[in-house]
Each structure stands twice: as C-alpha cells, then as structure tokens.
Amino acid sequence: MLRKRLITVLTLNDGVLFRTRNFQPDYRYTANFVDAWSVDELVALDITRPGEGSREHFHRAIAELSRQCFVPLAAGGGVRSVDDFHALLGMGADKVVINTGAVENPGLITEAARLFGTQCVVLSVDARRRTDGTYEVYTHFGSHPTGLTPEAWARRAEDLGAGEIMITSIDRDGTLEGYDNDLNRQVADSVRIPALVCGGAGRWKDFVDGFELGHAAAVCTTNIYHFTETSVRSAKMFLHDAGISIRES
C-alpha cells in the first residue's frame, strides 16, 4: 500500500537554514539540521528576499543536501523560468517547487512538465483566509493577493501539467496551531494529483488530521521538529498508533 508521507520542509535564507513565522525568517537553526535517514522526503525552499543574498548559496546548500540524502529532494523559491529548473535539477533536486512564477506565467508549468515530466513540477499554493471564510491565493512570499481561489488555481495547474500541489496556509505558518484542513480538503478534493499540506503543524495529532480531514497525500512540517532523530520517529509512532499507513523505518 502506498504510504502517507511525512515531508520535512527546510527554509533557507541566503543558504542558511531558518524557521519561519507567518512567512518571515524567525529563528536560525544552529544545530546539525537534518537527519536525512528517517524522513520520507525533503523540500528545500529559498526564502531569501530579492537583493538580500546570493542564489549561489542556496544552490550550494541544495547540492550538499542532494549529496548526503538518498531521499527525494524538491527545491524551490524564486523559480521563474525553465533555466531556474535546469539550475536546481543540476544541483541535484528531483523536483522543483514553483509558486509566484507559475501565477505570473502559467505556461511555465506546461513547459517544465513537457521538458522534465509532470512529476518534476510541484505547484506551491500559498493561501490566506478571507474574512468571509473563503480563501485567496497570494504570491511573492505571501504579500500579493492574486484574486485566484486555491481550488480553481490548483485545478488549472493540474490541467497545465503540475504533478503535485503543495498547499500552505499563510495564516497558520509557524503558529503550531494545526493545519487549515478546510483549505487543504477543498484543494485536495479539487485535483487528482497528490496534495501536500503545509503550515501550522504543532502536535503529532495535527498530522493525523492533515491526512484524515485535509485529505493529504503528504503532510509537511517546517518548524515542528528541531531535527532530532527522535522527533521524526515519535511522529511516525504516533501516526502508526492512529492507524495511518506510513513508512516506519
């Protein structure tokens, strides 16, 4: 049986690993940061603001992760062109995460899918809850409203060739209050490709809810583990006990 995945998201600012709160770099990790042997998959995002650092540093971090980690590695942040895909794939990424670049130029999804395969294109959708309870897609690190609804955008992206959708609740990012599973379910149910959910996990129970209420194929965590060996294991034990089919070792 295909296992539910537990994905570790790493946010890097100028090549340095940070955790985030509401999309702002918040705390710099100093510890040995990744125990690659017990996570199912890694997503590394460049959260360097334009003009504030070097792309090279991020690329170097990706190359290093790829060399050490024999698990799937997705990379993204600031991807605007097929050249950016080439660069990240060349550094050892297996998949590329696109967000703002896809909203600005939806044709990029199709072009990249044609060149590298749909499995290579992960569309990241950052959404904020409106006061009326509906959701809106934001770009540029969550700062630009787009007028798009997450479901419609995800569906369109699937048609254009995206292979996975990564849904992030901006409101929940870094809050440890749990995923926004209304958002997650709406988006996951509107597409047939796997949905990865992100933003807000603070307790192991949140993972169970992400799968069961959010209809996720994978739950992502950015800030919950401080990358110790036991945290991933405890999370998986909890999921196993809750009846979720995961990869245990």
Binding site: M1, L2, R3, K4, R5, Q119, G163, P194, A217, R247
Partner: peptide, 11 residues
C-alpha cells in the same frame, strides 16, 4: 480515487 502520478513509498 487513487491519485496519478503514483508518488511515494510503496511495498
């Protein structure tokens, strides 16, 4: 209801 592509860890 199974999603395509088949992505992830399987037996």
């Amino acid at each position: 209801s199974l999603r395509i592509p088949h992505v992830g860890w399987n037996d």
